[in-house]
Amino acid sequence: MTRRRSLRPEDEEIWRVVTRTITPMHRAAPSLSTFDSPPVKPEAAVKLHHAQPRLPHFSLGEKARAKTAHNLAPTLAESLGASPLQMDAKTHGKMTRGKLAPEARIDLHGLTLAEAHPDLIRFILNAQSAGLRLVLVITGKGKLRDDTGPIPQRMGALRHQVPQWLRMAPLGPAVLQITEAHLKHGGSGAYYVYLRRR
């Protein structure tokens, strides 16, 4: 003999709520449940609202409707080109085409960031005190290394750091303009630094 279980009052209330929301598959079939509820009225049935899709409908093979803008950091050339022109436009044009020869140069190849920063400060301040206007800072393009970490690392630490150093104190007041060098002076692995007069 099977023993019937009785429900606690709170479970019985939950059961009644659930049975009000269902419709029987076979209307004529007698109910064998001991916890019968009154027949379900159509007005009492809960109406379900389906969520609206966030993306518009598309079919396979359809062309993209609009390009999505990605918020990527600008390249070094773009960020340097976007900076306002502080020097004479004619001189700037000659400089970017490689027509002006740098009066001094420093090569930071193979140095760490800790070694390169004081050398760059010393070089720029000495060049300004000597009355030089256009100097070349060679950083190199950087080496491609194994990037096994979860955060991607940029290639060329010096290439990315030198323009920031040139804008910060103590070099910021001495520097008038920074641009990437022409190909004959190193291309994207070097920078023209145009200095202010003392």
Rank of each mutant, 00 (worst) to 15 (best):
H182Q: 08
L136C: 09
R167I: 00
P170L: 05
G187D: 03
L176S: 14
L134F: 15
T96Q: 09
L132E: 10
P118Q: 04
L166F: 01
S129D: 12
L158E: 00
R133P: 05
R133Q: 15
M87R: 10
Q164I: 13
G140M: 10
H92C: 07
L166I: 01
M95A: 08
K141W: 10
G81C: 06
I121W: 05
H117K: 15
H182S: 15
A127I: 04
A114P: 03
R133S: 15
G98Q: 05
Q161K: 13
M87I: 14
L136P: 07
L136F: 07
A104S: 09
L144A: 14
A130I: 06
L80F: 05
M87Q: 10
M155P: 04
Q177V: 06
L100I: 13
L111E: 00
L111V: 05
K143M: 11
Q177N: 14
G140R: 10
R154M: 09
L171V: 08
V162E: 02
L85K: 08
L134I: 15
I124Y: 00
M87T: 14
Q128V: 09
N126T: 15
P102A: 00
G187T: 01
I121T: 14
T91G: 08
T148G: 15
R154T: 11
G172D: 07
T179I: 12
I121Y: 00
L120M: 09
L158K: 04
E103C: 00
R133I: 11
H182Y: 11
I121R: 10
L120Q: 05
E115M: 06
P84Y: 04
H92P: 03
E180D: 07
T139D: 06
L125A: 08
K94G: 05
G140D: 10
P150S: 14
G142H: 12
L108T: 00
R154W: 06
R97P: 00
D119T: 08
L125Q: 12
A181I: 02
V137C: 06
H182C: 09
L166W: 01
P84K: 07
M87A: 13
I151Q: 13
A104V: 04
I178M: 09
D146M: 13
H182G: 06
R122N: 12
L80P: 02
A101F: 00
A114H: 08
V175A: 02
P150I: 13
G81Q: 11
N126I: 06
K94T: 06
K143G: 14
Q161E: 11
T91S: 09
G98P: 01
R145I: 13
G187K: 01
Q153L: 11
V175P: 01
